[in-house]
Simulated assay, not measured.
Amino acid sequence: MPRDRRFEHAMAEVHRYIRALMARARERMQPQEEPRNLLEAMLVLRDAPGADITDDDVAANVMTLLVAGEDTTATSIAWALLFLGTDDALQARVAADARHALGDAPVCPTYDAMRALDSCEAVCTEASRLHPVAPYLSFEPLEDVQLSGVRLPAGTKMFMLNRPAMLDARHFADAARYDPQRWLRDRRRDGDSDAPTHEPRAWMQFGAGPRVCPGRHLASVEMRLVASMLMANFVARLATDPANIHEVCAFTMVPSAMPMRLQLRDKPVASH
């Protein structure tokens, strides 16, 4: 079909771009110099003597970095809108924080301003705790191991469910309640033993350890930028009964729908 041929042509262009990106990175890299980004780190490993990694392997990982994180970030924002669009007081607080950081600008103007948008990230983080965009992580041991007395031969496919830990009262106080404020006050860092239970390591949206998502910081920046733009400029209302919104798991867990009605904060003109 014509659309299939257009897709194949577009994919060929993407792959040519990735190879050119790799070539430019190699030209920039100086001998004995530490890699400055993830692409350079992969190329250093690829070019090391005896490496069993190919250019195809590097290109496949670059492709993942280019396209894999978009749906996770967008879905986190969508779930946050479910709560923002049904809680006027919460939306007013986040909107005030966003407008204070943005000033007169319609979007976040500087990196320093973005750093002040903690509440915009918190509403997305807390939404994905209750509605995890990545509800499970898959792992495969490269060699025979034992985990808590269970033998796991090399190549065993394991799927770890994330939500039980994120809804466990041992990790989060009042775990079933949507409370973005919990991400803005971890008083236990100040030695307050009476602070509400809050274990951020139990929030597993980006994994952990050596396999943690390399795009996690970019995702947090994107969530801050989009949420602040929406809250600073629009009043958002959920345009359906929340009971009509269901979780749909297709690798990532997305809402079945998230219809929002946006009204400009400074003008009575509505846009959808």
Rank of each mutant, 00 (worst) to 15 (best):
residue 102 L to C: 03
residue 103 G to D: 04
residue 103 G to L: 08
residue 104 D to Q: 08
residue 105 A to M: 06
residue 109 P to D: 11
residue 110 T to Y: 07
residue 110 T to D: 02
residue 110 T to E: 01
residue 111 Y to M: 15
residue 113 A to W: 00
residue 113 A to Q: 09
residue 113 A to E: 05
residue 115 R to T: 11
residue 115 R to L: 10
residue 116 A to H: 11
residue 118 D to M: 13
residue 119 S to H: 07
residue 120 C to G: 01
residue 124 C to A: 13
residue 127 A to K: 04
residue 127 A to D: 06
residue 132 P to K: 10
residue 135 P to E: 03
residue 135 P to I: 03
residue 137 L to R: 05
residue 139 F to G: 10
residue 141 P to H: 00
residue 143 E to K: 07
residue 146 Q to H: 05
residue 148 S to R: 12
residue 149 G to R: 05
residue 150 V to G: 01
residue 152 L to P: 00
residue 153 P to R: 00
residue 155 G to R: 00
residue 156 T to E: 00
residue 156 T to I: 06
residue 157 K to N: 07
residue 158 M to Q: 12
residue 158 M to I: 15
residue 159 F to P: 00
residue 159 F to K: 12
residue 160 M to F: 05
residue 161 L to F: 14
residue 163 R to V: 13
residue 164 P to N: 05
residue 164 P to A: 12
residue 168 D to A: 09
residue 168 D to Q: 10
residue 168 D to E: 09
residue 169 A to S: 08
residue 170 R to E: 11
residue 170 R to G: 06
residue 171 H to R: 11
residue 173 A to T: 03
residue 176 A to D: 07
residue 177 R to T: 11
residue 180 P to D: 04
residue 184 L to E: 06
residue 186 D to Y: 09
residue 187 R to Q: 10
residue 187 R to M: 02
residue 188 R to E: 03
residue 189 R to G: 07
residue 189 R to K: 09
residue 190 D to W: 14
residue 196 P to L: 15
residue 196 P to E: 12
residue 197 T to S: 12
residue 197 T to I: 14
residue 198 H to L: 15
residue 198 H to F: 13
residue 199 E to M: 14
residue 200 P to S: 14
residue 201 R to A: 11
residue 203 W to S: 08
residue 204 M to P: 00
residue 205 Q to G: 06
residue 205 Q to S: 15
residue 208 A to E: 04
residue 209 G to R: 05
residue 210 P to C: 08
residue 212 V to F: 13
residue 213 C to S: 01
residue 213 C to K: 01
residue 215 G to I: 12
residue 215 G to Y: 15
residue 215 G to N: 02
residue 217 H to T: 11
residue 217 H to E: 07
residue 218 L to C: 09
residue 218 L to D: 06
residue 220 S to C: 01
residue 221 V to F: 07
residue 222 E to T: 03
